[in-house]
C-alpha cells in the first residue's frame, strides 16, 4: 500500500468533502450504491477536493468495488 501520510498531513485546515454512500432501490429491483460528496457547508462554500477528501473517496470506491464483487459471487441482487 502506498504511504500517503505526508500528503494527508499537508493541510491541517482542509475542509474535507465527505463521501457518503446510500443504497437506492432501482425499478429493476437491483441496488445502486449512490455516492454523494458533501462538505456540510452551504452553497457559499462549494465542495473542494483536497488530499483527505480524495483519500476518503478512494477508500469508499475500494469498499464498494469489493462489495460489488462479493454480491456477484453470491449472486444476490
Amino acid at each position: 500500500m502506498t504511504d500517503f501520510s505526508k500528503l494527508l498531513a499537508l493541510d491541517p485546515d482542509e475542509v474535507v468533502t465527505h463521501s457518503f454512500v446510500r443504497d437506492i432501490r432501482l425499478p429493476s429491483g437491483k441496488t445502486l450504491a449512490l455516492i454523494t460528496l458533501d462538505n456540510g457547508k452551504d452553497y457559499t462554500r462549494p465542495n473542494t477536493l483536497g488530499p483527505n477528501t480524495l483519500h476518503e473517496l478512494s477508500g469508499v470506491l475500494d469498499r464498494l468495488a469489493a462489495r460489488g464483487r462479493r454480491r456477484r459471487s453470491t449472486a444476490s441482487p
Binding site: F20, V21, R22, I24, L34, T36, D38
Partner: peptide, 24 residues
C-alpha cells in the same frame, strides 16, 4: 404491478448518512 412508479419523479434527499433518492 409497477402502476404507480412511472409517474413519480425521484427527488434527492439529504440525511445524516448522506444524500439519497426518494423514489416511493
Amino acid at each position: 404491478a409497477g402502476r404507480i412508479q412511472p409517474d413519480l419523479i425521484p427527488v434527492a434527499i439529504q440525511s445524516d448518512e448522506g444524500w439519497g433518492l426518494a423514489t416511493e
